[in-house]
């Protein structure tokens, strides 16, 4: 079975106890284990940062879902990362309200500041920049997320503050 997905796949890794614990909890929500596939991938990603072939195979074996079927789910969703990403994923909204209010300039600013384009990760592994479809905060455009945090009414100045706080590990507090 295992040779069905990407040729780089070696073999399943061991899922950690925390991962298994959380996957088991999700299982109680659904009558069929296939339904837990996406949740399990998200759990793995939460702990590992991304979903490697070894992780995908581990989930596939644990839930008894064919690896190619699980790969079909993993690649369908924007927020499942099948390649390594930085510690902080910057999701910059590029949909219509943010576009009208200047997200292209913000993208340029982030790229200049961090030296990365969309889909790239900084050399120190701290940031990855990805465009994201409408984040549903259009009244506060432009908007981005970093990890699970949403930042609104963005300006280049605000972005500089956010990056600086993340770089030195201090909580992000913005003086607007």
């Amino acid at each position: 079975m295992n040779n069905l997905i990407a040729s780089t796949a070696i073999k399943a890794r061991q899922l950690t106890e925390e991962e298994i614990h959380e996957i088991e909890h999700e299982k109680t929500h659904y009558p069929y284990t296939q339904a837990v596939g996406l949740e399990a991938l998200k759990i793995v990603q939460k702990y590992q940062g991304w979903v490697s072939d070894e992780s995908l195979l581990a989930v596939s074996e644990y839930l008894d879902i064919a690896p190619d079927e699980l790969e079909g789910v993993a690649t369908f969703f924007n927020m499942i990362f099948r390649r390594p990403v930085g510690k902080n994923v910057i999701l910059l909204c590029d949909s219509v309200a943010c576009w009208m209010l200047g997200c292209d300039n913000l993208k340029q600013h982030i790229s200049n500041t961090l030296g990365i384009d969309y889909g790239e990760t900084t050399k120190d592994g701290l940031f990855t920049l990805i465009p994201v479809p409408c984040l549903g905060a259009c009244d506060k455009a432009p908007v981005m997320m970093v990890g699970r945090e949403t930042y609104t009414n963005l300006s280049t100045n605000k972005i500089d503050q956010i990056i600086a706080h993340i770089r030195d590990g201090s909580p992000v507090e913005l003086d607007n």
Binding site: Y30, G37, E39, N78, P133
Partner: peptide, 27 residues
């Protein structure tokens, strides 16, 4: 009542695609 959080795909809002997604399939 259970909460399912998705992973970003507009088509999941279409109700039959949403049902496929909830079943753990491609949406």
């Amino acid at each position: 009542i259970y909460l399912h959080t998705s992973a970003g795909r507009y088509i999941c809002g279409e109700e039959t695609a949403l049902i496929n997604a909830l079943e753990g399939k491609r949406a």
